[in-house]
Design a protein around this nucleic acid. Sequence first.
DNA 1: TGACAACCGGAATGGTCATTCCGTTAGGCT
DNA 2: AGCCTAACGGAATGACCATTCCGGTTGTCA
Lengths: 222, 222
Amino acid sequence: MTIPVVNPTVAGSEPGPAVAAPDGSPTRADARRNRAKVMAAAQSVFAAHGVSAPMEDVARQAGVGVGTVYRHFSTKEALVEAIVADHIGPLVEQARLGLESDDPGGAFFRLLQALLDELVSFRPLAEAIAATAEHLAGARSQKDELVTLAVALLTRAQDAGTIRPDVQPEDLELLLSGLAHACDRHGGNQGNGARYLAIVWDGLRTADPTPLGGGLLPAGGH
Amino acid sequence: MTIPVVNPTVAGSEPGPAVAAPDGSPTRADARRNRAKVMAAAQSVFAAHGVSAPMEDVARQAGVGVGTVYRHFSTKEALVEAIVADHIGPLVEQARLGLESDDPGGAFFRLLQALLDELVSFRPLAEAIAATAEHLAGARSQKDELVTLAVALLTRAQDAGTIRPDVQPEDLELLLSGLAHACDRHGGNQGNGARYLAIVWDGLRTADPTPLGGGLLPAGGH
DNA sequence: TGACAACCGGAATGGTCATTCCGTTAGGCT
DNA sequence: AGCCTAACGGAATGACCATTCCGGTTGTCA
């Protein structure tokens, strides 16, 4: 047992051994190189076969042994999380900028659109988003932060009159969840995802909305 | 239960051994009883823990051994399919009636609503629907039939002017898929599912739709 | 250049299922 | 009542994986 590490670093991303010293120094060159190879391999393997693909496939694709994969990511979950973080980072950034825009509705739409693009290109992201959306409590991870920012953007878009006022953050969770899943299931066809988004978007901005409260009567039908 | 289907035995439902003789005669009483117990147990176990729940849990809940479960359903998949068929049957019936209604829009909405209810009460149904929706080729199973009928209903609702004309059957697949997943992920809260449906519905019936074709520009934003 | 960790690879381990096998039990029919 | 066989139950089997272990390799630093 050689795990003298005392520093926890960021939970999950840089786990057990010391890939990076407590202060952030890089360590051995081959280790850094391998970490990158593993990330790239995981990216492609998980994208192609979903997160259920065996760790050994990731290792093979990376040209290393499983042991090496586990040296860098103490757990499969940690590996997935690391990749997801890569995808989410830019989205968080975009959401931040959007909050400062004077066109909240457009910014919100573009955020959804960007999210959709990522979703299409990397399936596991969908699962991660969906899982996070479960309860948007406090923002501790990037995923949570993204959800939080998206909610803020939603509120601003509502204040601006672009989005119907009766939509709640929980609905956003559900919509994202559904969006994610639909894209997951039809990964190959980005066009479909775009159509789906357009429809939901129209539902969000409708001027003559079906009451969301109780009765569930179609506003336009009948 | 009520499976008005005229068809002999649906492939997969009554497999290997002779739960029913080739001509359809019932067989031993205890066998029939156990089959029912297994179905009920599977229903509740899968609903509670998802289809990934072990067959042994189903057997225990039914008060029988795994061997007995396999005597009635040659495969886990066959068991799931049998339960799903129970849930889909009534929906197919409703869709049929809806096709004869003079209010296609309302009928379509009510079908979605009923589907949603089933989805909320039985998670695996979501997966099954989503899986089927993949390609709505020919209607050979009940699932396919449901999708086909729903598409027909959609077309009629469009002809009646309730649903925007640029919505395609593929979009329906995606929407159902997303709907299913959202309900799967938030099984406990039917209220949320209803809200989600209302939003999507408004997107479907909007009078001022975002073009579904190319540019992906928000119609109301900016 | 030599020594010492840090790293590496991949076989071995442990756990979780679906599915099969077979000795035992008990409906149904004469 | 007694036989014959469909049905049972549940231990055993086989696959698939994540994760761990440890002897061998190789950057790095003095």
